[in-house]
Each structure stands twice: as C-alpha cells, then as structure tokens.
Nucleic acid binder design. Structure first.
Lengths: 191, 191
DNA sequence: ATGCTATGAATGAAGG
DNA sequence: CCTTCATTCATAGCAT
C-alpha cells in the first residue's frame, strides 16, 4: 500500500550478470534500479514510448536484470492507465462530494458505471521529453509517407456506432428476414 | 492466443446476482467454446471475415453465450494483429539478453513498426489450412483462402442498413439455458 | 493459511 | 491496419 517509495524486494539477482536464478521467471519483476529509471522517465513526461524508445530503454535496463521490451511497454501502459484511473477516481470523489453539498436538481448524479466517466482534468501532460537525459531517445517518427492507406474500413466502426446507439432491442424473432444468399455451412474439416 | 494454461473465468454468466468473478455485462467475455470456435476458424485461415461471415459466426456462437457480431469482428481484428505482433519479434535487444535459456532468438532485422514490441515467444501454429469452407462459393471463385480477404464494403453498407432493423439475437438469457451441442463438435452447420 | 493490495500481462473495444 | 484506452485476469508480497 505504501505509495511511491515502494521498494519491494530487490529480487536479488543480476546487476548485469543474470544470476537472477531464484526468481520465478513466470513474470517480470522489476528491480529497484529498473523501477527508478522507468519512474524517472515517466516523471519526465514519457507516457507512450515509441518502439525505438522502448528498445533503448529495455536494452539499457537489461543491465540491471532480465527484461524484455514488452515489459517496458506494459509498464508504461499500466502506469499511465493507473495514474489516469487514480485521477479519475479522485475526480469522481470530488464530484460526488460536491454533489452531496449541493443537492440541486439540475445536477445529475451519474454512476460512473464502467465507462461513463469521461475525461477529467487531463492537463499536465507531455512535458519535455527531450529533457530527460537518461536516454537520448530523440528519434523522430518521420514516417509521414504512409498516410493514404486507410480509407474504407471505417465503415464497420460506423456500423458499430450505429448499432450501439440505435436501440438494442434486437427483436427476437426475425424469421422473415435473413436473406442470406444461401444456406451455408461452415465446417472445419480438420482437427 | 496464449491460452496455454489459462482458462480465465468461464463466464460466470450474469444471472443478476453477478457474484463470481467479474462478468460485468459491460464487455463481452468469450466462453471457452466460443473461443475455441474462433480459434479454429482463425487457424483454419480465416483472418478478416466478411460481414456475412461475421454474422453467421456470431449467430452460431450466440449459442454458447451472449455475443454480438462486433465482438467477432473485434476478435478477429485483435487476434490477427496480435498474432502478427508475436511473429514480428523485434529482437533488437538480442545481445543484451543474458542468462537462461534464451529462446531461439532469430532476428531478421526490420524496421520496428511502431509498436510491435510485444515479442512473445509462444509458438503457435500458423499454418493456413485450405480446407476451410466458410462459403461454398461457386467454382469461378478461386478457392484460395486468401481470396476471402476481398473487401466487401458494399456488403458493409447493406449490413449497416440491415442491422439497423435486424439486430442479432444475443439475448441475455439468464435462465434460457439451452442444451448446446457437443463442445467437440468440429463442424458448424449454419443455417 | 487467508486476505488484500499492487501490478504484470492480456485482451476487448475504439479511434484514426 | 495501427495505436491507444479501459478492464480484467492472475500473482507476487506483505499483512493479518
């Protein structure tokens, strides 16, 4: 529960060597050094590192212990998500608190069911990434060439949106319709 | 993917009480049967099902639990993308990988596609089985599986229009427990 | 042992 | 298709 200064067991191991034997290798367990670097990067403003950045970070962190790129990826993913989540929760609490204070009618207390919670103060973001000196990851993403590719497949998205907004009634019996070309049979003739 | 020894909750199925593990009706949680069928289809070579296929699959799968066509759509999207991710192991950090049995790290260098860091080393069959017959098309259509990747956006249009009125069953079915065919059924007969 | 919390990992759902 | 977000599953660790 301890907050930021979580230290966790250092998991012994490595320091470059790789003697991380004792650890159950089913799941990556960051060392304190790794955690520090990651936190620093995050604090410096890095939120969604590019593949190159991930690679660099991962490579660098491998010095402190076994680590893979995906671990870095997941770490940032989770860290960002959970911070947002935390902030969201706080905001909700705040909101809730206020609502209790003023019981005005035009305030609609919405239960944050699942996804109702919309973005709240999401400011304070994306600080200068260039300033983090830990790893000079100034690799630009110059890929502007491929921008004219996606064009059609957005239709399904629209469809989804449509069906989501349009009543979910889904009338049970639709015997008449189903005008599918042919009585089909999907079969897996293997396995 | 990666259901080696993980089964996840087999969908405690809502049923009001909602106890159990999760299964909040906010998001589709595939049952093992559904997952099996989907995986089979995928392994059979189906990658980007057409609208019709999606609908049929979802109809069939609704037999095993609540499901919508969009779930099928998303499943294939995600599964395909993530399969590729796995296949495209970056492995730029090969030299820094120390210790323990490093998997047969073969690295064909390529430009990291912005996010394929998820270098998972799970080996799954990726053979394309030509025996898949999702649609017994006429002879003039090449029976090549890859041929099914044809963009059928026109169908999407139709589909969209149609789904506005005819949604799929996917009844919640709290008590409507129907006897499902043998989970080992290898052939799906769609009607 | 039992339970809880923090968090790594996975994946459903979207957005673009 | 690619990238990202939100949820959820599964556990390691520590607490009780």
């Amino acid at each position: 529960m301890s907050f930021p200064l979580k230290v966790r067991s250092v998991r012994g191991n490595n320091g470059g060597g790789g003697g991380g034997t004792g650890t159950k290798c089913g799941r990556w367990n960051p060392t304190v050094e790794q955690l520090k670097v990651l936190s620093d990067l995050f604090r410096a403003g890095l939120r969604t590192p590019t593949t190159d950045q991930i690679q660099k970070i991962s490579t660098e962190l491998s010095f402190y212990g076994k680590i893979e790129s995906k671990n870095v990826f997941y770490w940032f993913q989770n860290h960002k998500a959970r911070e947002r989540q935390k902030r969201r929760k706080i905001s909700i609490d705040f909101d809730h608190h206020h609502q209790e204070n003023d019981y005005i009618s035009h305030h609609h207390h919405r239960q944050p069911s699942t996804r109702d919670v919309l973005e709240i103060n999401e400011d304070e973001e994306e600080r200068v990434i260039e300033t983090l000196q830990l790893f000079p990851v100034n690799s630009f993403q110059e890929s502007k060439v491929e921008k004219m590719r996606s064009r059609v497949n957005n239709q399904y998205r629209e469809y989804i949106r449509e069906t989501n907004t349009t009543t979910f009634l889904s009338y049970s019996s639709c015997g008449a319709e189903m005008e599918h070309p042919s009585p089909l049979e999907l079969r897996l003739s293997f396995l």
